[in-house]
Simulated scan of single mutants.
Amino acid sequence: MNNLQLIVGKLLPNKSNLLNVPASEIVEHICEGIYQEDFYLVRDKEVLSKIPILIRDCVLLIDFDTELNMNGIFGYLENSTGKFIDETIEVLERIGAVRDAKALNKIKKSLSNFGLKTHDLNTNLHNLKEYQINNFIQTHGITDSELLDRIQQEAENLYINNQEENIFNNLIDYIEANKQNLIDELKEYL
Rank of each mutant, 00 (worst) to 15 (best):
H119D: 03
G96N: 09
T139N: 05
N166H: 13
S49P: 14
I73S: 00
L60G: 09
A177W: 01
N181V: 08
I73C: 03
I55Y: 04
L54V: 03
E37H: 11
N20V: 01
Y40K: 12
G9Y: 07
Y40T: 12
D57H: 15
L41I: 02
L60D: 06
L182R: 00
I160Q: 11
E25N: 12
R43N: 04
S112W: 05
I172R: 03
L158D: 02
L116W: 04
L60R: 01
L116C: 04
Y174P: 15
Y189V: 06
E185C: 07
I30E: 02
H126K: 10
D100K: 04
F64M: 06
I7K: 04
E78M: 09
Y189G: 01
M1L: 08
E28P: 00
H126G: 11
N69V: 04
S110F: 10
E154I: 05
V59S: 06
G33M: 13
H119R: 06
T88V: 10
Y131G: 01
K50A: 13
D65C: 06
L92D: 00
K117T: 15
N178L: 06
G9V: 01
T66A: 13
K45T: 11
N135R: 04
F39A: 07
Y131F: 15
N181A: 14
N169P: 00
K102D: 13
V21P: 00
G96P: 08
K102C: 02
E154K: 14
R94M: 08
L41P: 10
S110D: 14
L41Q: 14
V42Q: 05
V59T: 06
K106F: 01
N17Y: 08
I167A: 08
V21R: 01
I34W: 07
E78Q: 15
E154N: 15
I7R: 02
F114C: 09
D57C: 08
N20D: 12
I53T: 14
I30Y: 03
R150C: 03
N20Q: 14
G115A: 08
T139Y: 03
R99I: 05
D100P: 00
I62W: 10
E165T: 15
R94V: 00
L125A: 12
F136R: 01
L19S: 12
N14D: 13
G33C: 06
E146V: 12
I51M: 11
K179N: 01
E32Q: 15
